[in-house]
């Protein structure tokens, strides 16, 4: 792991600069490399996932620039940053969904509980079974609500009705959807409302009890009540699952996450405990972003 922190100037120096958008973001915008501020508290946690100098190119365009960050075990980590900064790309790289995109090239590696994700010998299907993912836009499958939830179990060959029924109920309860759909489990999932569809996708992601849960703006399609339910759900999952969550909502990040990472144009700018990021960040760039003065 590169120790970027050692090369950065002390926070005090930066704080003296008057510009709202700090030098680092300007430097990034000019295509220069910047060091990432990773708080020491992050490194004290046991990581479930280690992202190690990971870079990614879509064709000739580089979307991720040498990001290194450990994702703590059984904690909620939030990824924030302006639109197009590579949050979804980073998330999709974790379960190697980017393999489906043509002309993608990567360098660096990620490790899930010590197993190299980009090792050529890694079975991608196995890897994905160890993770659950919820996408920015709800993407229910063209089948019944029930079949949607137990999809991951079905493709694993699970046939026992009892097991499936239980997984279905537990996951739907977990996603705060059970009461709304318990009488229509056999109906098509495409008939649900947008918010219900998104919670269905969450239920689907947790049905197979993954090691890591990847949430890409899970609440962008939800109303405040459903959002609250999902945040409650995330609180419940904490301690049992390691969650990596993208969000544009700063309140949500501060409420629901333990750690927060701020990304900008494909680079990790600052990463630390949520309370520190929101109250006493090292960089004033981070401060201006999380307080809404920029971004």
């Amino acid at each position: 792991m590169p120790r970027d922190t050692e090369q950065t100037p002390p926070a005090a120096v930066l704080n003296e600069q008057p510009a709202a958008v700090g030098d680092r973001l300007l430097a990034v915008a000019n295509g220069e490399d910047i060091p990432s501020e990773v708080h020491d508290r992050v490194r004290e946690e046991t990581p479930v996932l280690e992202i190690d100098r990971f870079s990614l190119w879509y064709g000739r365009k580089q979307a991720i620039h040498s990001v290194s960050m450990p994702i703590p075990h059984n904690q909620v980590t939030a990824l924030v940053g302006p639109s197009g900064c590579g949050k979804s790309t980073l998330l999709k790289s974790v379960n190697r969904l980017n393999d489906l995109v043509q002309n993608v090239r990567i360098t660096g590696d990620m490790r899930l509980n010590g197993d190299s994700i980009y090792d050529p010998r890694m079975d991608v299907i196995d890897l994905r079974k160890r993770m659950g993912m919820v996408f920015q836009k709800p993407n229910p499958f063209p089948m019944s609500i029930y079949e949607n939830v137990v999809y991951a179990l079905r493709i694993d060959g699970e046939r026992n009705r009892g097991v499936l029924d239980e997984a279905c109920e537990v996951s739907l309860r977990g996603a705060a959807l059970w009461d709304e759909v318990k009488d229509r489990l056999r109906d098509s999932a495409l008939g649900l409302s947008g918010g219900q569809q998104q919670r269905l996708c969450i239920a689907r992601a947790i049905a197979a009890e993954p090691e890591v849960l990847l949430l890409d703006e899970p609440c962008s399609a939800l109303d405040p009540i459903a959002t609250g339910k999902v945040e409650d759900l995330i609180q419940e999952l904490r301690g049992r699952y390691s969650v990596l969550m993208v969000t544009h909502n700063m309140q949500q990040a501060s409420r629901a996450s333990d750690y927060t990472a701020f990304m900008y144009l494909g680079r990790l700018v600052e990463y630390g405990p949520t309370s520190d990021i929101f109250t006493k960040p090292i960089l004033r760039e981070t401060e201006s972003y999380v307080t809404g003065r920029f971004g």
Binding site: L97, L100, M133, N139, P142, A208
Partner: peptide
């Protein structure tokens, strides 16, 4: 939809069939 299926750990054929 395809991405969602792959993310659940489905193989290509499973995704196509289901």
């Amino acid at each position: 939809m395809r991405e969602g299926s792959y993310a659940c750990g489905a193989s290509k054929w499973q995704t196509i069939r289901r």
